[in-house]
Every structure is written in structure tokens, then in C-alpha cells.
Amino acid sequence: MSTITKEKMSWFFACKVEDVPANGGVCVKYKDGQIALFYFARRGEWYASQNLCPHRKQMALSRGMIGAQQGEPKVACPFHKKTFSLADGRCLSDEHECAIKVYPVKLEDDRIYIGVHPIPG
């Protein structure tokens, strides 16, 4: 989130708005990785995070239910309902659980882009 890394951010085209269900998520293929993309239609907001749930290492977060806790956007893993903040990635339901990585999202017309940092090395 710091300004130093911001400059190195590169944006890739994920999909179009119509491809993502309102108030739900999809999984986006990026190189060999997977990114979960969420559309909070009620708030007109977009979020992206790693698709892997750190609890049991399952590629599943994009299939989870989204919602909010005290206004903070979150996703619940379909496997064991661990919930993660989509604002900063921390686990909301279990303080000992690892946080997930979150990515910035931007919209150009009906095209959605996700911001990633080139993997160092």
C-alpha cells in the first residue's frame, strides 16, 4: 500500500463487468496464479484478493459469500466459513489465521483491471 510500491504496480485486464455476478465473486486466471474478484453491487465497489484460503489451502474464496461486518467488506470461505476482510486481508473470524493478500481494482468503462506487483526476482 505504500507509495514506493505503487509506482511499480502493473494493471492487467481481468474481465468485463457483465461477467461478474452482482454481489458475488469470480476467479481470474493471472499467469499461473488465481485471483478472486468481487463485485459489491450494492456499494458499487470492487475488491480482489488471493483465491487461496490460507486455512486449508483451498482455491475457493471466489466461490464464497460476500458481505460486510460493521461496514467492512468481507468474504466467507465456502469450506469452513472463515471470513476475511477485503479491505486489508486480515482474518475476521479467527485472530490466529493468516491474512490474505488483497489487490487494487480499477474500472475503465466496462473493463475491469487488477493491479499486481511483478514478482521480485
Binding site: N23, F40, G67, A68, G71, K74, A76, T83
Partner: peptide, 10 residues
């Protein structure tokens, strides 16, 4: 009110 969650949605 709000955005809902994994408890009230189902």
C-alpha cells in the same frame, strides 16, 4: 441494513 453476510444470506 448494510450489505448482508454469510449468516443472513442463506
Amino acid at each position: 441494513q448494510g450489505d448482508g453476510c454469510e449468516v443472513c444470506k442463506p
